[in-house]
Amino acid sequence: MIVISKDSMGIIREQDVVPFRSRVKEYATKIGMSLVNQTKLITAASELVRNMLKYANGGIVTLEIISKNGISGVRLTFEDKGPGIKDIQLAMKDGFSTGRSLGLGLPGTKRLVNEFDIKSVPGEGTTVTITHWKNGR
């Protein structure tokens, strides 16, 4: 796997969400992702950024265009220094939420993208990495 381009963006306020989404769209368009796959990726990114703002007062997102076996994709890494998640398995269950949201957050987001990885240390922060390939497979 190779990284073709890389950039990062700080998310501190709610107003950062819309520009961030356009940035993700820009990346997805650049590699020629289809509209449905673009929408899935951007929606997933939107969910994760909201989580970051809600639970950790923001964080940093790294945007990358990567290529594996000749297929390009977009990889996003969401890093925050929030309270972390105690029980990741529980957080990944449909219907679970500590906030007042619908509880679709993490499992719903996972279904939208090809690859989903989450690491969290309670008290230190959470890192979520998602990858979506050009053809959505």
């Binding site: 449905v36 673009q38 929408t39 899935k40 499992p107 719903g108 279904r111």
Partner: peptide
């Protein structure tokens, strides 16, 4: 609602 949005919402579980 756009088709892409509908497909995404269903996948999201909404």
């Amino acid at each position: 609602m756009q088709p892409a949005v509908a497909i995404t919402l269903v996948e999201l579980g909404l």
